[in-house]
Amino acid sequence: MGCVSSKQFNRAPQHEDPAILAKETTFSVSEVEALFELFKKISHSIFRDGLIHKEEFQLALFRNSNKKNLFANRIFDLFDLKRNGVIDFGEFVRSLSIFHPETPLGDKIAFAFRLYDLRGTGCIEREELHEMVLALLNESDLFLSEEAVEKIVDQTFKQADLNDDGKIDPDEWKTFASKNPALLKNMTLPYLKDITMVFPSFILNSEV
C-alpha cells in the first residue's frame, strides 16, 4: 500500500484578514491581496496545503527544493515567526513588509541583525561571522584562502566592534550599517511597490 505525506491532506488554513495585515504592515489592502496570489502559488508548489514549507521556499528561490544555502535557511527561519516549521500567510506578509521600499531603515537594520545573529545570542560573534563567510564561499564559486578570510573578519570587527569586546551588539550594528548602506541593499525589494501589477488577478479574488 502506498504512503502519501500527511502534509498533503491538511485542510487549508484560515488566512488572516487583509485589512488587518495592511494595518500592521507597509502594504495596502490591494497589495496584501496581490501577495496572496503569490503566496498561493508558492504554498501549492509541492505540498498544496496552503502553507509554505522550507522545500517550497527553496524551490521558489532557486528552482531547486534541495539546494543548501545558509542564508535561505536563515530567512525561512526568520519568516517563520511562530517557529512551527512553516510560513503562513500572515507571517509571509509581515516578513516581506520589512523588504518594502517604504519600510523604515531601522526595521531593515534590525532584521539584518537577526539574520546575522546565527545562534540568537543577541550579538554577532566573531565565530558566527567567520562561519557565514565560509558558508558563502562553499556555496558560491568564490575562493579565498583561510588567511584572507581571517583578515576580512578581523578588519570587519575592527570597524564594527566599537567597544572591542569581540562581538557586535545591536547598537554597534546600527552604527556600522548606517555608515555602510550597501549592506542593506538586499533588504529592499523594489518589486514590492509593483506587486498589484505583477499579480493583477488579485482583483478577481478580492474580498474587499
Binding site: 524551490l59 542564508f71 557565514m132 563567510v133 556555496e139 576580512i152 578588519q155 564594527a160 549592506l183
Partner: peptide, 24 residues
Amino acid sequence: PEALNAFELISMSAGLNLGNLFDS
C-alpha cells in the same frame, strides 16, 4: 573581495535574491 568588509562580501555573494520569489 579582500577589500570588502565581511558583511559586504556576504550581502553581495550569498547567492540569495528574494526577488526570485516573484518569478516563481
